[in-house]
Simulated assay, not measured.
Amino acid sequence: MDDKIQAHLNAKAENPRIRILSYQYRGQTVYYETSPCCDQYTTLYDAKGNVLCAPDGGITGRGDGKCADFEKNRTAEQLIWQDPR
């Protein structure tokens, strides 16, 4: 996640601010990265930084459908990082 955070800091600030949160989901720690705006997918990563799915966003707001149960089954939310700009 450090590389992702640094990439955001090197890019222009977004509105709304990008946030990265951690959750427990399907027995593992995962990281949820918000999208900058409208109709863009959010991204869910495993602990190694591999993309698991897009749980929400896109034109329908329902993501890519690969983890449709994320919102319902996620637990232990923690804010990892929020763009301070």
Rank of each mutant, 00 (worst) to 15 (best):
R74E: 04
D69L: 01
W81Y: 08
D83I: 09
I59T: 08
N10R: 08
K66V: 06
A7G: 06
R19Q: 14
Y32C: 03
K66T: 12
M1G: 10
D46L: 11
I20W: 01
H8Q: 12
A11Y: 09
D46Y: 09
K72Q: 15
T60I: 01
T60L: 05
T42A: 12
L79N: 02
A11Q: 11
E77M: 08
V51K: 14
Q40P: 04
I59Y: 13
K4V: 14
D2Y: 11
A54T: 06
L79Q: 00
V30P: 03
K72M: 08
N15K: 15
Q40N: 15
A68E: 07
K72P: 05
R62L: 14
E33A: 09
L52W: 00
F70P: 05
K66M: 11
S22H: 00
K66L: 12
K48C: 05
N73W: 00
C53N: 08
A7Y: 08
Y23S: 01
T60D: 15
G27I: 05
K72I: 00
G27Q: 07
R19L: 09
R85L: 13
C67Y: 03
S22E: 02
Q78K: 15
Q40H: 14
P55K: 04
D69N: 04
G63R: 00
D2T: 14
Q6R: 09
T34L: 06
K66H: 12
D69P: 04
Q78G: 00
A76K: 15
L9I: 15
I59L: 14
P16V: 02
L21H: 13
I59K: 06
L52H: 06
A68D: 10
Y32L: 06
Q82L: 08
T60E: 15
Y23V: 01
G49M: 09
C37P: 11
R19S: 07
T60N: 05
G57E: 04
T34P: 03
K72S: 08
W81R: 07
F70G: 00
I20C: 05
A68P: 02
N10K: 08
Y23P: 03
K12V: 14
T75H: 09
K4M: 12
E33N: 03
Y23F: 13
Q28Y: 13
K12P: 14
K12M: 15
K48D: 04
Y32V: 02
K72V: 02
N10V: 11
D56M: 06
E71K: 13
M1N: 07
K48T: 13
T42F: 01
P55S: 04
Y32W: 13
C53M: 00
E33T: 02
